[in-house]
Nucleic acid binder design. Structure first.
Lengths: 246, 246
DNA sequence: CGATTTATTGAATCGACTCAATTGATGTGG
DNA sequence: CCACATCAATTGAGTCGATTCAATAAATCG
């Protein structure tokens, strides 16, 4: 069974057979199954381990006192919640599932052992955490500067490319189990306007989204429409100087 | 001369005399002075070292193709640009100064030596990078959910508290060399609306901002007005189990 | 199959924007 | 140290993108 994390990290550096075995091992221990629409960890709780997402969709979110809610990030298979999170005393946000999800827990002990024995893996994990931060910055740009349509188009591009990086697209389609209400909370738009925005993208012929499946007939056009510059995803095998030569 | 970084890291853990000496040393080598309104590093360039800000104000920002610009973060004294940035091949954003700035460069070699010899410092630096990410997430919430007034109030609270953590406030005032145009690019508002928003906060008596000085007569009120929850700044001495017992 | 969630539509409203002009500050050279 | 130039802040008026409210249609689920 392919481990999404391995596919993703290999966008950064070539891993040795041993590296991959270690990662596969990581992904097979301390595995939890969580149902849809469940909390994985709540704001205020103490983080005890790093969560590695193996399958399913989840998201980070924060609430304001009056009930408004912002989705801060989506977690896809192969994603990790913050690397090193156990340094902090308590979570400042929550993580919840969209679909049923499987996650592996990486304890501090396992992580420390990796640090000692598998520097290439640790480097790759640092890369993944830097990319996660870069994604957060790009969301800041979207929310601050892009119009509703651009914002929506940009988010769809990003999610599609991230799914592609872990082998979860087929041609120009992918599973997309996100409701319009979720998209509203992620883009800072009202649900009604999300609906109208999607209709506009459909009318332009750049997006098809129905019954939990997303198709992007013309990805370059969608990227142009949202001024999408993929450099923030750092998918260009940037760690090639660290490659295992196996 | 007090080093802002030391003050900040001590919000996380108590440092030994030796730790502080090492940090002071860091902050005294490879120091650069940069004038106001200059680029420290530009999108597309290769990052070679970590920048540690010693004095002055700067910001991260990204441009869209059509010229729109978003300020993604402010850098204050004691801040570091991404920890470990040299892993990435090229910058996906730029960093520019507001005021004259002094920065110290931390090379990969210095950082690696810290990792080997000063684990408490490295832990504290991880904490600071996690906090930076948490701030970015809170900006996502602000841009997505808060109204213009709330957003503005929230930003002012954040900057004031961050300045306070490095000893750069006096009573309820601090230097604030940011133009309304900069605030507009940070909050995703138009400059005109920033002006009106500030007038509103002035009229409410919660903010005074003129001639590059910010005063917050009633910080709790300003926090209430923006639904500010300081937990994301993780200032509560969370690493006390790592304290040096000296 | 009915019950509930999700998606869609229309109409009225509002927060924030643009454009354009003015006032006030800051700074520099003669 | 003033005069001019530049940059920053302020004001008014009109507009627009996105919102709210409310109702309906379609899809999904037990």
């Amino acid at each position: 069974m392919p481990v999404a994390l391995i596919a993703k990290l290999e966008r950064f550096t070539r891993l040795s057979r041993q590296d991959k075995a270690v990662l596969a091992q990581l992904a097979s221990e301390r595995v939890r199954k969580v149902g849809p629409h469940q909390d994985i960890i709540r704001e205020g709780e103490a983080p005890v381990e790093i969560n590695l997402f193996l399958s399913g969709w989840a998201y980070r979110h924060k609430h304001l006192e009056d009930g408004r809610r912002q989705i801060i990030a989506f977690f896809l298979p192969g994603d990790l919640c913050d690397h090193n999170i156990f340094i902090l005393r308590e979570m400042d946000h929550s993580v919840s599932t969209i679909t049923p999800v499987t996650v592996a827990g990486v304890t501090r002990e396992i992580f420390d052992a990796l640090t000692l024995n598998h520097p290439r893996i640790i480097q790759a994990l640092w890369w993944e955490s830097l990319v996660t931060c870069a994604i957060q910055r790009e969301w800041t740009v979207s929310l601050g500067q892009r119009s509703a349509t651009e914002r929506m188009a940009h988010l769809l591009c990003e999610l599609f490319l991230r799914l592609q990086a872990v082998g979860l697209t087929e041609g120009n389609s992918c599973d997309f189990p996100v409701t319009q209400a979720d998209l509203a909370d992620a883009t800072g738009l009202s649900p009604v306007h999300v609906n109208r925005t999607l209709q506009e993208l459909r009318a332009l012929g750049v997006v098809e989204l129905r019954s939990k499946t997303l198709s992007i007939p013309d990805l370059p056009a969608l990227m142009r429409a949202s001024m999408f510059n993929a450099s923030y995803l750092h998918l260009g095998h940037e760690g090639n100087h660290l490659d295992a030569n196996e």
